[in-house]
Computed example of a mutant assay.
Amino acid sequence: MDAKTIIDQTEKYYLPVFGRYQLALTHGKGCKLYDADGNEYLDFLAGIAVNSLGHAHPALVKAISEQAAKLMHCSNIYYTDIQAKAVKEIIETTGFDRVFLANSGAEANEGAIKLARKYGHQKNEGKYRIITAVHSFHGRTMMTVTATGQPKYQQGYEPLPAGFDYVPYGDLEALREAMDEDVCCVLLEPIQGEGGVHVPSDTYLHEARLLCDKYDALLVFDEIQTGVARTGKWFAYMHSGVKPDIMTFAKGIGGGFPVGGFVVTEWLAHVFKPGDHGGTFGGNALACAAIYATLTTIKNEN
């Protein structure tokens, strides 16, 4: 199809939720993209922080192709060799103990919020409040859009889920004033992305850790945009030395394949019991092949 046909057909049938550029892309190679008219572009967007190996990286293409010929999907009630390899690689790379795999960043944050709420509920039924930052972005499900500290994303979806409060990012005094025994978690981006690339002081993240410890609340870092070496370390929390209790990831960890998830420390892993959380497609064989290929390629190629 030529560019006009692609654009017209998409506009006719797709829900009008994206403000698209009038550009119809057909393929990519490395850091270059090509459109239906044969034009070449240098890709600075990387699929919104997703294509961590560029386009059509041979290691990733090979891994997904070979896995597709063997097994694309089965239920998580069974074990697969590629999932075993992928989760081991994730744990060794992130520095945590346990992982849950989903399909997107929103699902990753949704799972982290559920785990934090379950943790708080086990302490007492009133420990459910979640503190997030103004200008944050955590997803577009009802729960994660509520966690997002930007009213423009929430308008028209009221009533929103209860129990969320917002504080200015980097403001220690505001965070101290917001904390109480009813807080089950503080959810922060270690560097804000959607909100304008705001880098906090190490003091801010250290104090957030201390406040969570004081009030028996969980510290959750959303590393969906900052993860997978985008800041010069595997994950942004490693710059500050402040380790959260839960860390979410997505985007770049699959090199372009839809992947999300969260990692936790061992003591927190058993708050969820069998049946408390799950998903049909999370951790499928193709996704795990993409994860394993992406992480090992970044390591091997430095």
Score class of each variant (00 low, 15 high):
Q22D: 15
G105Y: 01
F100Y: 12
R98C: 13
L23P: 07
K85W: 08
H73Q: 15
M72N: 11
V50W: 00
C74V: 15
S52F: 00
A24W: 06
C74I: 10
G95C: 07
H27V: 05
A56K: 05
C31T: 10
Y79V: 12
T93E: 05
A108R: 00
C31M: 15
R20V: 01
V50D: 03
K62D: 15
Y34L: 03
C74T: 14
L33S: 00
A59K: 09
Y78P: 01
D81K: 10
T93N: 01
A46G: 08
K62L: 14
I77R: 10
G28A: 06
Q83R: 14
I82K: 01
E66G: 08
H57G: 01
G47H: 06
A84L: 15
N103H: 01
D81W: 10
Y34R: 00
L101A: 07
T80Y: 06
Y21R: 15
L33R: 00
V99C: 08
A46N: 11
Q67S: 09
I77Q: 12
S104M: 03
E89Y: 01
K70L: 12
G47W: 07
Y21G: 14
H27W: 12
Y78I: 07
H55E: 01
G38D: 04
K70I: 07
D37R: 13
S65W: 13
I90A: 01
H55A: 05
E89A: 13
E40V: 12
R20F: 07
K32G: 02
I64A: 07
I64T: 11
Y78K: 08
G54P: 02
K88M: 09
V50G: 02
A108N: 04
Y41C: 02
E92D: 15
N103S: 07
T93S: 11
E107D: 13
L53A: 05
A56T: 05
K62P: 08
E110M: 03
A86S: 12
Q22V: 07
V61Y: 12
K29F: 11
V87F: 00
D81F: 10
D81I: 15
G54R: 00
V87K: 02
A49K: 09
L25F: 05
T26I: 13
D35P: 03
K29M: 09
A49H: 11
A68I: 03
G95T: 06
G47E: 10
K85V: 11
E92F: 04
N39K: 13
G30C: 04
L42A: 14
T94G: 05
H57A: 04
L45R: 10
T26G: 13
G95M: 05
N51Q: 12
A63T: 05
K88D: 14
